[in-house]
Amino acid sequence: MDTMVRELSYSQAIQEAMAIAMERDPRVFLMGEDIGVYGGAFQVTGDLVHRFGEDRVMDMPISELAGAGVAVGAALAGMRPVFEFQFSDFATLGMEQIVNQAAKLRFMLGGAVSVPLVMRFPAGSGTGAAAQHSQSLEAWLAHVPGLKVVQPSTPHDAKGLLLAAIEDPDPVMIFEHKLLYKTKGPVPEGWYTVPLDRAEIRREGRDLTVVATSIMVIKALEAAATLAQEGIELEVVDLRSLRPIDTETLIASVSRTHRLMCVYEGVKTLGIGSEVSAAIAESEAFDLLDAPIVRLGGAECPLPYNPELEKAAVPQVADIVETARRLVQGRI
C-alpha cells in the first residue's frame, strides 16, 4: 500500500474513490439528487460530472423510492450503481426498495442473483437542520440481513471502505457524517480497500474499552486525551462496520480492559451500542467485566433546532469524559 503522507478531506477522499472506481470500471456510475453540476448538497461529487459526463454522474428526479429501485434494477442487470441519498433521512422514502428488494433478492431467489449496489447516506446532527435532516438511522439498516452497513470515521477509511463497497457483490450502505466532510487526514493515493467487516482500534488503553461509531470516534479520542492526563487510559475502538459486527475485536479488547462503554449518535434505545453491549454480555468477556456496561447514545427525542438543545441531544466530549471517569473509578 502506498503510505505517502498526503492529506485530503473526508469528502475529497470519497470523491477520489468514486473517480478511481469509474476510471477502473465502466459499469460504475453515480446517481442522486443534484449530484451533477450542483456538485451534491455537500459537494461530495463536486466536479465529477465534468470529468465523467451526465450519463455517469446522473442527476435524478426527486423520487427516492424509484431512484433506489432503479439502482437495484441496474445492479441486477449488470451495472455498479453508487447511489447518493441527499440526506440519510430521505432513506425513509426509499426504504421499500432497500429493505424488501435490495437486501432480500439474493436470498429470496436462492442465490440466483447478486445486487452489487452502494448507497451513501450523509447523516448526523450538528448542522442546525433540525429533525428531518439530522438523523442517524444506520441501526435501522443494520437490522436487515442482506445489507452490509459501514460508518467511516476518517478520510482514509471513507475512501477505502467506498472502494471495497463498490467491488463487493452485495448491497453496501455507507453512513457518512456531515460534520466529518471537512475533516482532514492522510489518504493514500490510488486504489486500496478497507475491509467491510473489521473494527479498528484507534487508541490502545488498559482501563476502559470505548466502542464508538463515526464522529463519536473523534470525540472519544479527544476524551481519551483529556483522561490520559489523569492517568485514565481509554481504548478507543472504531466499530466501523455495523453489519457484520466484528465481535472478535470487541471481545478481545474488553477482555483486556474489563470495562465497556458504547458511544453513538443514533437514538440510544435499540441503537448500535445496544447490540454491541449484548454481544459482550453474551460472550466470554462477560465474566471479566469489572463494571456495568454503559451506553451513551442520542436522546429520546427528535433532533431539535436550537443549537444548545441540538448539542444536548447527542453525546459530547464532556459527556464521554465524565461517564468514562465515573466508570473507571467504580462510581457506576
Binding site: 424509484a66 432503479v70 437495484v72 434494477g73 426498495q97
Partner: peptide, 10 residues
C-alpha cells in the same frame, strides 16, 4: 416497477 426502470437504464 422501479427495478424494471433500472434494468432498462442498464
Amino acid at each position: 416497477l422501479p427495478i424494471a426502470v433500472g434494468a432498462a437504464l442498464a
